[in-house]
Design a protein around this nucleic acid. Structure first.
Lengths: 252, 252
DNA sequence: CGGCGGCTTGAAGGACGTCAAGATTAGTGG
DNA sequence: CCACTAATCTTGACGTCCTTCAAGCCGCCG
């Protein structure tokens, strides 16, 4: 999308948004596939750029939005990692997902018209804010944008269904690691060595396990030479072996 | 023994297709809220009606669509009950959901462009078929239609997330029964007595439990006078009590 | 009637959670 | 740079909920 908009001409409400390279920015965003291909209506495309608002930085434990906030926008993570979770009345946490750069957050707020969860920065996070009313309007003009929104929503259903299956701790953790690796790879990061930015307790909660179980399974994986763990850094040694463990979970 | 129903048989809300009356048809469909309100562009509304195709009857175990089929349409259940599930390579089943009259099926096929699951009739089923390309095109013309599609997709994410939580068998089953009651009520059927069209094994699979566990929990609920069970017919005796059991699952 | 699939009930075993105690790391101030 | 503390992570022992296995029951339909 960016070749249309000279770098610097884009109104960036927050000067801290530091990626002067608009093209690179788009290539890591969930709308990149809409924006980048040639042939898209140039004028409307410009409108998409206009409604994007760079926001950040957020720091660890900062909220991008909170449960109950009126739903006004969806967000693309630009840098850092975001956790979505909800807290029930007893303060019990339920982690819904982790969001890497290029991924969208907040889509599940459309229906109730309120965000149904908190979005929390796990480290230093920058996001792009897409006003949803504006985006929906734009979607009526650019079918590709509408299509992409449908795809993003539909994909989220699939992800959620995957979590819902009843699987062993080994399957869950193997699938989790493979999923992270794949998502990192898709964004141009190493898929063989990466950092688990979130705490063990968050992983455990997300996978519906106890933190202790996560510890034990990671150790078992390491003993089987599937991975190497050092604190929050993970090295994938035998992706095929992991895939074998997760086979019942991945192909859907 | 409180005999609310003569002859010992609970009334089976048998949702029968109400063909012919277009208005009534709309009132039981997920797009009813779009179609019925006055003020919607009459011409476009007519188009929505035009792209609807009534299909059926399907009989128990018939497939409305199958996993891997190219995604071409979404379906509104008009009568009967539909189960969506997927079968892994080992023939292991995973039930994704049960769909009552007025509810949509197939939305999760948008992203992969193939249906990611089978949709199976549990009894005699009639559906409305919405060609998705046509619907998407229409959505660009009628914002309300687009909005409704977004809402439906977003709501599905919420439903899936609910399943994903880690909850006890009691919580799951209580929430399941309350959810069914609520959905029946929303469609004008009795919310205090209804029929579990699906087999115990299906319920169990859906809730990620063993069939035996479902049996045992239902019996326990009955012993506690929360419900009355007779084969596949259920009577809700103490919805408040059930809600108390499911409290950790519902408000999420 | 007799057989078959779905449902129930009981007993035993396993996977994971909980509890409790260390070990390691990170964060802070001297 | 080094205490010192607090948080996070690991490891072990034990308990529990649910599954698994096995048998018997019920309703249904040939």
């Amino acid at each position: 999308m960016s070749e249309l908009v000279p770098a610097g001409k884009l109104p960036a409400p927050n000067p801290i948004a530091d990626d002067g390279d608009e093209l690179h920015f788009c290539s890591t965003c969930a709308f990149g596939s809409v924006c980048l291909p040639a042939g898209v209506d140039k004028t409307a495309l410009h409108e998409l750029h206009m409604l994007v608002e760079h926001v950040g930085p957020f720091h660890a434990d900062d909220a991008i939005f909170r449960s109950g906030d009126p739903f006004t926008a969806i967000y693309a993570v630009r840098a850092g990692m975001v956790k979505t979770h909800l807290l029930d009345d007893n303060g019990h946490e339920q982690v819904l997902g982790f969001h890497l750069p290029g991924e969208m957050v907040g889509l599940n707020g459309i229906h109730p018209a309120k965000y149904p969860c908190d979005a929390i920065a796990l480290d230093t996070v920058y996001v792009c804010r897409f006003s949803f009313p504006a985006l929906a309007t734009l979607a009526t003009k650019i079918p590709d944008v509408q299509q992409q929104l449908f795809r993003l929503l539909s994909a989220d259903i699939g992800k959620a269904m995957q979590l819902a299956g009843d699987h062993s701790a080994d399957e869950r953790l193997a699938a989790f690691l493979l999923g992270l690796a794949e998502r990192y790879a898709a964004r141009g990061f190493s898929s063989t060595a990466f950092r688990l930015v979130m705490a063990r307790a968050d992983i455990a909660n997300y996978l519906r396990l106890a933190a202790e179980t996560v510890s034990r399974v990671l150790r078992r994986f390491q003993d089987k030479n599937l991975i190497r763990v050092e604190g929050r850094d993970v090295e994938m040694l035998d992706a095929a072996g992991l895939r074998r463990l997760a086979r019942n979970l991945l192909p859907g």
